[in-house]
């Protein structure tokens, strides 16, 4: 098995929470992603063995959901919203800017493995459109100019932990609403931040 003991233990803990093993598939895929940054075929084999379904069934689920990445992503996953609210607030300019800076098309990763660019559907920040996510940490009220400075900052500092509130403070514009919970922990990889899977940054 290509998973170490610690990861297997963690997986077994997750599996135990469900009456049927196969129900743990979703969280296990996140666990796999926390390991590699994407769902590798090796991980699929491990998961299939752990929960007793075939590899291709795991593959089927993992390729259906777009947040399970099928290929390694860069250090920073840039998700720009292209849904209606953002679109009418000029997200296409933001997208154009991102593409200009990174030179990437949709779902591409640069050669250095720093940026992955994707266009996504609604990320739930319509009030603060246009919105953009760095490693799933949301910044609202973006303009092409703030996008440029955001990228300059990312390139220069290459921060390990990305925290939404910090990004918002530095580069964001209008906010949809005051977020109830201060999100200070952020994420440490280009995967969603889950406390369970050790993908959140340390809280400040």
């Amino acid at each position: 098995m290509s998973w170490d003991k610690k990861l297997i233990n963690q997986a077994n803990k997750i599996i135990k929470q469900y009456p049927q093993k196969r129900s743990a598939l979703g969280p296990l895929l996140h666990l796999a992603q926390s390991k590699d940054g994407y769902i590798s075929d090796d991980s699929i084999e491990v998961i299939s063995e752990l929960i007793g379904i075939t590899e291709v069934q795991v593959k089927s689920v993992s390729t259906f959901y777009s947040m399970y990445k099928q290929e390694p992503t860069g250090k920073y996953l840039i998700s720009v919203c292209k849904s209606i609210s953002c679109e009418i607030s000029n997200s296409s300019d933001v997208i154009k800017k991102v593409q200009e800076i990174t030179g990437l098309n949709n779902n591409e990763t640069d050669e250095e493995g720093i940026f992955t660019f994707e266009k996504v559907e609604c990320i739930g920040a319509c009030g603060g459109a246009p919105a953009i996510q760095i490693n799933y940490e949301t910044v609202e009220g973006m303009t092409p100019e703030s996008t440029e400075s955001l990228f300059n900052w990312l390139k220069e500092n290459q921060p390990k932990v990305i925290v939404a509130d910090i990004l918002q403070e530095k580069f964001g514009g209008t906010r949809s609403f005051e977020w109830g919970i201060k999100d200070n922990s952020g994420t440490i990889a280009s995967v969603p931040g889950f406390q369970n899977f050790n993908t959140v940054g340390e809280s400040k």
């Binding site: 075939t54 291709v56 069934q57």
Partner: peptide
């Protein structure tokens, strides 16, 4: 009872396929 083929991908990319080497 041997589901070795499944839909992979989604939307207009959906296809029936097996797992590589399986």
């Amino acid at each position: 009872g041997d589901p070795l083929i499944e839909f992979v991908q989604r939307g207009n990319k959906t296809e029936v396929n097996t797992f590589p080497n399986e």
